[in-house]
Design a protein around this nucleic acid. Structure first.
Length: 429
RNA sequence: UCCUCGGUAGCUCAAUGGUAGAGCAUCCGGCUGUUAACCGGAGGGUUGCAAGUUCGAGUCUUGCCCGAGGAGCCA
């Protein structure tokens, strides 16, 4: 019976078939240990000369790293085996013999591994990262679905920039120029009018020439948007979602976090409430360490790190000066120079995980902002319409999936959190 | 776009301006409980490319190519 390795414990004493690839092998005289992986886990199989047909023993000698194999044998509990179980082999079939697999179980440089990403994904740590990515996305969706949100995805080919300033990837569209979406938010503001609570989840594209461990040119973003929700409400939503996601990953992917050597104490100690500080308070914290920083400037990566190191959990920074935030952010009625915006800065120097806020809901003010920012008024007509036909206070945020994964996994660079990273000057494989 | 660092065997790295080396991988041999197994042996090189200085360049100089880290911008 074909079984998956993650379930092997249920089959103790029984004969099973595993289908997978040779992870590694070791030998000692007349005994062979072969490690097989199938995507769900790794299992050791033991083959002793004399216990099996000579031809089986001979196959075990010939098998090479990453050859695809089908193995039959009996499951046995054994403390000496990694994982606690092993298979006493009865037969092995080599489906295809791999030759000179380029990634050995030794250390390799990132320069070497990135062009081999299609194979690198097979290795243990990368496998754990992908499992955590899957769980994180599932947890986000489960959280929102459980609160009655509707997944209403937004277009990737879009006629204009959301914020006008950021560099976009142009695409030829039957002779016209369209752009790859950098956010689904504006469309979310339309679908809340139809559905109330929505989210979109998909790839987004930024053509900036960013070359840091926090940037990809193609990355995934989860963007919830809610009608009749204010700034405080959106912070509460983001906080509860992050806590739910961490909880699910700790509960379901503990082994993967262990493989990644993640210090889970840094995750388990995160409880609500997350600190909520104003931009002005954040500036005061920064000025203690960076005398040159002036009120009104946007935070750079080193400034975000100063803030994140001042707390041991994610921190909300709200009420940024309107000038450094997007045109669609609602102004604070108590102080027109401030916006009802919020960023969530992750711990351990991971940077901005979430950006969001309350949106401008007044037609005349929004039109003024569009004109101030010299945006093409015609292209934004539908967006302005939303303020004409039953406008309401509304808020939302965007969560950068890869940064969230990097934080939870405790890895430095977002390029390892997506199966095939797209970076400045790297689109292979 | 700017700043910093790097490029030597399949991989990871050594090598005062003076014979190009080790570990791993591969191949051969040994070992009946291995845990990135171990032990012995063998093969393996246009030192990123081009020019220059020098009796002599992996090493020094200049230019170029490629990569990594960071900045700005952002999630």
């Amino acid at each position: 019976m074909h079984v998956y390795i993650e379930d092997i414990g249920k089959y103790e004493g029984r004969e099973v078939t595993v289908k997978g690839w040779l992870y590694n092998k070791r030998s000692s005289g007349k005994i062979r240990f072969i490690l097989i992986r199938d995507g769900t886990g790794i299992i050791q199989s033991v083959i002793a000369e004399g216990d099996v047909d000579d031809s089986v023993f001979e196959v075990a000698d010939r098998i090479t790293q990453e050859s695809s194999v089908i193995l039959n044998g009996t499951v046995r509990k054994d403390e000496r085996a990694p994982g606690g179980y092993e298979i006493v082999a009865e037969s092995i079939e080599i489906v295809q013999a791999a030759q000179d697999y380029p990634i050995t179980p030794k250390e390799h440089s990132i320069e070497y591994l990135l062009p081999l990403r299609h194979l690198w994904l097979r290795s243990k740590k990368q496998n754990s990262i992908m499992h955590i990515r899957h769980e994180l996305i599932k947890a986000c969706r489960d959280f929102l679905d459980g609160r009655g949100f509707i997944n209403a995805d937004t277009p990737i080919l879009t006629p204009a920039s959301v914020e006008g300033t950021t560099t976009l990837f142009p695409v030829d569209y039957y002779g016209d120029k369209v752009y790859l979406a950098q956010s689904g938010q504006l469309y979310n503001e339309a679908t809340i009018g139809a559905l109330g609570k929505v989210y979109c989840f998909g790839p987004t594209f930024r053509a900036e020439k960013s070359k840091t461990r926090r940037h990809l040119t193609e990355f995934w973003m989860l963007e919830p948007e809610v009608a009749f929700l204010d700034l405080d409400g959106v912070m509460k939503l983001a906080e509860e979602m992050i806590l739910y996601v961490i909880g699910q990953i700790l509960e379901k992917r503990g082994n993967d976090l262990k493989t990644l050597e993640r210090d889970t104490a840094k995750l388990t100690r995160i409880k609500k409430p997350f600190p909520r500080i104003t931009y002005r308070e954040a500036v005061d914290i920064i000025k203690k360490k960076d005398k040159k920083f002036e009120y009104g400037e946007d935070f750079g990566a080193p400034h975000e790190t100063i803030i994140s190191e001042s707390f041991d959990k994610p921190v909300f920074i709200h009420h940024y000066p309107a000038g450094i935030k997007a045109f669609y952010m609602k102004r604070d009625p108590k102080d027109e120079s401030l916006s009802l915006s919020v960023d969530m800065i992750g711990p351990e120097g991971i940077g901005e995980l979430i950006g969001g806020g309350q949106r401008e809901d007044d037609y005349d003010i929004l039109l003024e902002r569009v004109r101030e920012n010299k945006l093409p008024e015609g292209a934004y007509q539908w967006y302005l319409d939303l303020r004409k036909y039953g406008t309401c206070p509304h808020s939302g945020f965007g969560l950068g999936i890869e940064r969230a994964i990097a934080w939870i996994c405790g890895i430095k660079h977002v390029r390892e959190t997506i199966p095939f990273p797209r970076m400045l000057e790297r689109v292979y494989p």
